[in-house]
């Protein structure tokens, strides 16, 4: 769960160019929410995303991630908890490095970059190939090519992958983080996660014993069954993984042609669905804003003016969205609808 409290940001304060980008904004996102944000240029959408990711510091306010304030962490310290995809395809990848090197950089997010480990090890190759294959763009055969040689759409797809593949934390890391991110009930949380861990470990151990004893199975069946048992253990522990990245998409398809944009959006939707990621997506396309996600937010002059979710959102159409838009921002109706229409 991510909670924004009283966020304010003014650019160039005290000068003629003073501009209040975010005006005392409050927002609560539940686990697994997929929010689309629309609003005219200068409404503060990108600023909001940059404040969450840490590339801009807010003047006031808190950003609570599962109850822990992250607003004072610098951008790179916050990176493990957020996956940021920018509008500009050039911004999300290191163009002089190969596809696999980029993915490896992303996978090490939140971990100390060691001088004693190779950035890419041989056994990771299969993992990256599989991940690239899931994009369905044929990129798995271009693992060792420089990212600079890829098209904008391909790069955005890779950036999307990079934003969502941070390495699975170890069980001990999960337990530690779970306690850290439940500061209000620290002891209780610790007890809970430790209890579940030991219970599951016991279940797994017993299952392995059973499988090994079972003479009816041949060795390949045995190893298969053991893998399954471990997967169950793993899945159960992943439920306590509070640091799953929140995906921040800043008009990530705006610079692409319509066909590629649709493809990238489709990939986005699939990744979000499969990993149950909490997601914020800025878009200028009203159709997309309606089609994707379970919640829609409209921003105007640094404030949230419309916030619809669930059934209500499903019934939205472009025309009543436009109506909402004009009633929400009464002064510059014409320019806004001209931009958005």
């Amino acid at each position: 769960m991510i909670e924004l409290k009283n966020i304010t940001k003014t650019f160039n304060p005290g000068t003629v160019n003073e501009h209040k980008a975010i005006d005392n904004l409050n927002l609560v996102l539940n686990e697994g929410d997929f929010v689309t944000i629309i609003g005219s240029n200068g409404a503060g959408k990108s600023t909001l995303l940059n404040i969450i990711s840490g590339s801009i510091d807010a003047d006031t306010g808190y950003i609570l991630l599962n109850g822990t304030n992250v607003a004072n962490l610098s951008e790179h310290r916050r990176a493990p908890y957020f996956g940021h995809v920018f509008q500009d395809p050039m911004k999300g990848t290191a163009t002089d490095m190969t596809v696999i090197e980029n993915l490896a950089l992303a996978r090490g997010r939140g971990k100390k970059r060691s001088i004693f480990r190779w950035s890419i090890s041989g056994k990771d190759k299969a993992y990256y190939e599989e991940k690239l294959k899931s994009l369905g763009l044929g990129l798995e055969s271009r693992l060792y090519q420089k990212v600079g040689l890829l098209s904008g759409g391909q790069r955005q797809a890779i950036t999307l992958l990079m934003a969502t593949i941070s390495q699975k934390p170890s069980f001990s890391q999960i337990r530690k983080d779970y306690v850290k991110f439940n500061p209000a009930r620290r002891d209780e949380a610790k007890e809970e996660v430790e209890r579940v861990y030991h219970e599951q470990k016991e279940i797994y151990k017993n299952a392995v014993k059973e499988i090994v004893k079972n003479h009816k199975l041949n060795s390949s069946e045995k190893s298969h069954k053991i893998k399954e048992a471990y997967k169950a253990f793993d899945t159960k522990m992943r439920e306590y993984d509070v640091t799953k990245p929140v995906l921040l998409l800043d008009e990530h398809t705006a610079a692409l042609d319509p066909k590629t944009a649709a493809k990238v959006l489709e990939i986005t939707e699939r990744i979000v669905r499969e990993q149950h990621l909490t997601t914020i997506m800025i878009t200028h396309n009203m159709n997309d804003a309606i089609k994707y996600g379970n919640r829609l937010i409209m921003m105007s002059k640094g404030k949230i003016t419309v916030d619809v979710s669930g059934e209500e959102k499903k019934k939205l159409t472009i025309s009543n969205l436009l109506d909402m838009f004009s009633s929400a921002s009464d002064n510059d109706v014409l320019s806004d609808s001209a931009i958005l229409g």
Binding site: M90, T93, A106, G110
Partner: peptide, 9 residues
């Protein structure tokens, strides 16, 4: 790419 580097922690 410093933007990318920071975003990757």
């Amino acid at each position: 790419n410093q933007d990318m580097a920071r975003a990757q922690g």
